[in-house]
Design a protein around this nucleic acid. Structure first.
Length: 479
RNA sequence: CGGGGCGUAGCGCAGACCGGUAGCGCACCGCGUUUGGGACGCGGGGGUCGGCGGUUCAAGUCCGCCCGCCCCGACCA
């Protein structure tokens, strides 16, 4: 591991991000451009995220399944907008088993088409609906500019695909799952998000309406942290997903899809991280507590280790994910820095002085330096630690929310908007016209991140063109 | 696909102008001393110098072709 100082967030945010991901050993570059390896520490974080989400999916009635990686090229071509949107970024397999394939296969960029094909086979009656299936897996999109976790050629995610008998039911599902994402990202990842609808130019290729949760990163740029789409009958028509309704009428089903990827790991890094490294929310951290034993010789070691053993047992018993760093070849100082880089929420130091005083030293990762350090009694330690983890979780969300809110402004003029989006988000009226949106992008590089679900009574005129406004929108530069 | 840069040990680089025993720092291995905020000393291992061809007694270095990567655009989210 490198012991050089990190680049700072202020000096070079994107290099700071890369270095944290690499040094915390969450990921590494793979030999193919744009591909990455999720290392055990990063994967453990992803596993915790999967569990937290999967539990919510099951609670809302969904089941898991697995669909194939290869999709016939012709499937994507069945939905016009879909193929137009995805064709520039497809990986295509033309050969297999040493010979040229009759029809090229696409490595799935998303699975609407192959799942639509299967749903057409499975759905005959309104009694077969709804179908509520989720899949955990990876997809491939041939992106030009890649970043670890944020945009890679192959990325891990989950994609939910549902089919319903009515438009209303499908729309409800779309918003329900957006709400599930918001709940997870806010309460588990401690990343505040705004739920909203995508403008036409930003919506998913083939959807009627796309919804999104948008988060603000430490450099004030926006990151889409999850999306949920209402497909209307577009894919049902393309794949003949038809059923007989309760009146014996043949109808096309209404479908949805929703996805959230390991990009949210990147969102956590860029929301919570500091110049010491990563800061992970206790609910998702692979290790919530690291214990560093401190001793100089065998006498001290034999006094300290039994206490470490007892404390670690107690914490495990209280349900904490803990790690005892018993490495002999590095110094305590090195370990402190190492675990701070990895973002472990709480560090316990147990040394000869603590053994003597029946105490432990406790350091909060979210409050660096002396301010976050305290000494607590070994008595009732587990309950104090559990409580502290909860406090950290809450305070991380509060801090991130305060940061975000302090960088959202309502412009008073178009000139004002162009200034605001240089270092924050603009919350403003919009007329709904795509040309206006394009003009803003051309002038400022900012796009409409979403039209928030939470809309006030909108009066007045569009910030860009002066025509009557139809909704409030967030404008920001995005990842 | 345009504009710029770079390929020498796992990583970061020097050596090239001016051809002559392939080096430095970190990492790694061994021994010893250290250990409450990134320890130190001594010893050691590791290289088709991106590839192919040419010039030369001799090429990391000069010449030609090719390949790959990075940054800025375009594209995407």
């Amino acid at each position: 591991m490198s012991t050089d100082k990190l680049p700072t967030r202020e000096d070079n945010f994107s290099e700071w991000y890369n270095q944290i991901v690499l040094r915390a050993e969450m990921a590494d570059y793979a030999p193919v451009r744009g591909c990455m390896v999720a290392r055990p520490y990063g994967w453990a974080l992803w596993e915790n995220m999967q569990q937290a989400l999967d539990r919510r999916f099951k609670e809302t009635g969904h089941v898991n399944a697995a669909f194939p990686l290869f999709i016939p090229m012709s499937f994507l071509e069945k939905e016009k907008e879909h193929i137009e949107g995805f064709s520039p970024e497809l990986a295509v397999v033309t050969h297999g088993g040493g010979s040229k394939l009759e029809e090229p296969l696409v490595v799935r960029p998303t699975s609407e088409t192959i799942i639509g094909y299967m749903y057409a086979k499975w759905i005959k009656s309104y009694r077969d609906l709804p179908i509520l299936i989720n899949q955990w897996g990876s997809v491939v999109r041939w992106e030009m500019r890649t970043r670890l976790f944020l945009r890679t050629l192959e990325f891990y995610w989950q994609e939910g695909h549902t089919a319903h008998a009515t438009a209303e039911e499908a729309q409800e599902e779309t918003l329900r799952m957006l709400g599930v994402y918001a709940d997870f990202v806010i309460n588990d990842a401690a990343v505040p998000v705004i739920q909203g609808v995508k403008s036409a130019s930003e919506k998913f290729a083939g959807a009627v309406q796309s919804t999104t949760i948008e988060a603000m990163m430490g450099d004030r740029r926006a990151l889409q942290a999850g999306t949920s789409h209402f497909m209307g009958q577009n894919f049902a028509k393309a794949f003949d997903i038809q059923f007989l309704d309760w009146n014996n009428q043949l109808q096309h089903a209404w479908t949805t899809s929703w996805g959230l990827s390991w990009r949210v790991i990147g969102a956590m890094v860029m929301t919570h991280g500091d110049n010491q490294g990563l800061v992970l929310p206790p609910k998702l951290a692979p290790f919530q507590v690291v214990i560093v034993p401190i001793y100089r010789d065998d006498t001290e070691k034999s006094a300290v280790l039994p206490v470490v053993e007892r404390v670690s047992k107690e914490l495990k018993g209280a349900g904490c994910r803990i790690r005892v760093d018993d490495r002999e070849e590095v110094t305590p100082g090195f370990k402190f820095n190492d675990w701070e880089m990895r973002g472990v929420p709480l560090r316990l130091e147990i040394g000869p002085k603590d053994v003597q005083k029946n105490s432990v030293a406790l350091a909060r990762r979210d409050i660096p330096g002396k301010a976050g350090k305290s000494f607590i009694s070994q008595e009732g330690l587990a309950s104090q630690v559990v409580q502290m983890l909860d406090t950290i979780q809450q305070s991380m969300l509060e801090r991130a929310t305060a940061f975000r809110d302090s960088h959202i402004h309502e412009p008073t003029s178009y000139a004002d908007l162009t200034e605001i989006v240089k270092d924050g988000w603009a919350y403003s009226r919009w007329c709904g016209d795509a040309d206006c949106e394009a003009k803003v992008k051309e002038d400022t590089k900012a796009t409409i991140r979403c039209l928030p679900l939470d809309q006030p009574e909108v009066q007045g005129v569009c910030i860009q063109c002066g025509k009557p406004a139809t909704s409030m929108a967030y404008f920001a530069r995005a990842y």
